[in-house]
Design a protein around this nucleic acid. Sequence first.
RNA 1: GGGGGGAUGUCCGAGUGGUUAAAGGAGACGCGCUGUAAACGCGUUGGCACUGCCUACGCAGGUUCGAAUCCUGCUCCCCCCA
Length: 398
Amino acid sequence: MDESDPEASRQAAELAAGAEECLPEGGLAEKLRTARREGRPLRVKLGIDPTAPDIHLGHVVVLDKLRAFQDAGHVVVLIVGDYTARVGDPSGRSSTRPVLSGKEIDANAHTFQEQAYRVLDPDPAKVEVRRNGEWLDMRVDDLFALARTTTVAQLLERDDFAKRFGAREPISVLELLYPLLQGYDSVAVRADVELGGTDQKFNLLLGRDVQRAYGLPEQVALTMPILPGTDGVQRMSKSLGNYVGVTEPPDEIYGKTLSVPDDAMAAWYRLLLRTGPDPELGPRDAKRALARALVARFHGADAATAAEERFDRIHVEREAPEEIEEATFAGDDGAVHLPGVLEEAFGLSRSEGRRLIAQGGVRLDGEAVTDADVPADRLDGAVLQVGKRRFRRLRRAS
RNA sequence: GGGGGGAUGUCCGAGUGGUUAAAGGAGACGCGCUGUAAACGCGUUGGCACUGCCUACGCAGGUUCGAAUCCUGCUCCCCCCA
């Protein structure tokens, strides 16, 4: 390899820091040299799925890396997978995912972009947003040409395909086509680098084959480690419900972070803060510091301090928070049936409310309620609490 | 074209005529404990002003004193052979 440009090698090492893999070996430095020679920035691609627009911390790991490329003067190409989404999810075993309308995709793409810009530099010179419908809405001849670039055996090498094929589980033809379509995106936008989680490794590498088939230079595939979700085991994902969204309020980000099992804490530190925990701190304080740092990142330092204070007040001191949302209840001067109030205030079903009362999970001004019927006088102005973290101040409806 | 298998509660999954609102697990929720919305233990987990009633096992009918379980038709899914 050409070592005449140590600057490129240095920048490549810096950009690949924290990545799981950066393939091929030396490819990134080579790309940087080429780009410099041609006097242009690298085009760094990320594909996004417009069916689940909310960005969570798992995305942030990849977006942070994109940001690093931007800061080094390169251009990020976000590809909204509108066309692939319109086709619908082919694997839908139990229920077919509803095919999104153009309007929904627009709305989702907009939301995604807005949230992604909390991490990315929104400077139009540094980010380009494209829809793959621009080029995937192709003629059948062109689709045939694309399909010819790859064999079924190649596609079946992908781990999850291989497993499903081995287990005699269904794989639709459309699913097999997905990696090709994604690869064609790289052709269309002339990607120099494509990012993704480690689960994307196959697709990113196949993109190289597709590019080569179209006579284009092959992209570098850069994969980032997968962030475990709040359960500490499975990858963070919206559908698994173990995610922390970047637009969530400070208290949610703080609390959810504290609920992460200790085992996963090191991964969160490494992937989200790019440091380790302070070795002076015990696990509890290390996790609190992590939670503060994450809230501060998306809401500012003051919000982080405030979120911690509220958390301590509710969970450590077991007191009601200072500010409580109000809820009204209808009642004359007699007894009020509490399950109805719970339904009104928290959206619980009445049966659920009854159960909670029976289990001592409902409190009025800190005292457990034992009877489903409560005098109206006792409710007005009182704090109604369900479990540890749901509070409402009651007001009689006038 | 032929043959076989399947659709059960939020999810996975047992149940093949009678204490079955439906085993078990996961998830969720509550209580206790605590270092926290962690871990662990216990409990709850269709709806309804609830010692009762209503609605539920793909959809629509039927048989029966009685059906998730049997029959008929329909819809959808999977596998094998060609």
